[in-house]
């Protein structure tokens, strides 16, 4: 678990083998450290710290489009944002809701599914190498191509899926999949699952493979079922990895915008707040509103992620 790393360092820093700058070749090492860290730290200061502080600053400002300068706007942006979310103006309400639906999707659907897939594949069933290789394909192909191929497949008139349904005599099931608010969001979600399992599968497979053989073998001798093995041995053993994957998925949910942008242009009830931010900046030059939305989501996201983390850590303690 990444965060618990921080506490681990404290212990590991006591590791006597590490160089203690105070005692060892003071100046030379110090210079080395400074040279090595200068660029990464500067990079972080500019692209992470400065950008975030500036976002905070912008969220209290507004762009004057006729002068190209920012002016102080107080809480105007936040007011506008909340108003838009509450009244669902320009689908802001839906975008806000979707961000949290995505959180649920990433945490409660994709991670468990990936875990099941990884568990099944860990049994070295026939073709497991083939499956592992194919499942990872969405991660090596650009999302632009992936979404393009996906939209070809689900296109209403010449698309693969509708054509297939028609041939199977299921014409009543054909839909305008990506162009109907009743099916578009579900379709985008299905896309995310379809393309998202591979990566988690790889990481979780790695963890499952490291479970000591003796544990699994002795359990087998005890005659437990696959289900029991999965629930009582596999999940607790790889829990730290599950935590990492879950937290990564949770934070990713607040940044999702490319999938809806490329699949539906954010229409038909599929937008997210992150996509709204991108649209406001690139199309409208509404830096203020975009920043206020960014800050709001960062705060809500941090709270949500903390809650999830707390829950995960509690389980970890129970098992250890």
């Amino acid at each position: 678990m990444i965060l618990s790393d921080i506490s681990k360092i404290e212990n590991k820093n006591k590791d006597k083998k590490a160089i203690d700058v105070k005692s060892h070749k003071l100046n030379k090492s110090k210079l080395f450290i400074i040279i090595m860290l200068a660029w990464p730290v500067a990079h972080w200061l500019v692209f992470t710290l400065f950008m975030n502080l500036q976002t905070l600053v912008y969220s209290f400002q507004r762009l004057n489009r006729f002068t190209g300068k920012m002016r102080f706007a107080g809480t105007e942006n936040y007011m506008e944002l909340f108003e838009k979310i509450i009244n669902n103006t320009a689908s802001y309400g839906i975008a806000f809701r979707n961000t949290f639906l995505w959180l649920g999707l990433n945490v409660l659907v994709i991670v468990p599914l990936s875990l099941v897939v990884a568990y099944v594949l860990s049994k070295k069933i026939p073709f497991h190498r083939f499956f592992n290789a194919v499942l990872f394909i969405p991660n090596i192909i650009s999302i632009v191509i992936l979404t393009m191929v996906w939209s070809f497949a689900w296109a209403p008139n010449q698309g693969l899926v509708n054509e297939l349904l028609t041939r199977l005599g299921l014409e009543h099931l054909t839909r305008v999949w990506l162009g109907d608010p009743k099916s578009a969001l579900i379709n985008v979600f299905v896309y995310c699952v379809w393309a998202g399992i591979g990566f988690n599968n790889l990481i979780l497979s790695g963890a499952i493979a490291k479970i000591p053989k003796e544990i699994l073998e002795s359990a087998e001798l005890d005659g437990i079922s696959n289900w029991q093995e999965f629930i009582h041995i596999v999940i607790p053993s790889v829990w730290p990895t599950i935590c990492t994957v879950t937290i990564l998925g949770a934070t990713a949910a607040f940044r999702v915008f490319l999938h809806p942008q490329l699949l539906t242009n954010g229409q038909y009830g599929t937008s997210t707040i992150a996509l709204k931010v991108v649209e406001e900046v690139l199309a409208g030059g509404s830096y203020g509103l975009a920043s206020a939305a960014g800050i709001t989501m960062a705060v809500l996201g941090y709270i949500a992620v903390s809650i999830i983390k707390k829950f995960l850590d509690k389980r970890e303690k129970e098992w250890s």
């Binding site: 700058v21 950008m51 975030n52 937290i247 940044r255 939305a293 996201g301 992620v305």
Partner: peptide, 28 residues
Amino acid sequence: KYKFRGNKLIYGMAIVGFLIPTSGTLAP
């Protein structure tokens, strides 16, 4: 591998990025 003041801080700086979902820094 090196122990010095600020080590923890710098590592923490990197970790913070994983925990705070920053979606809004595009404007700046």
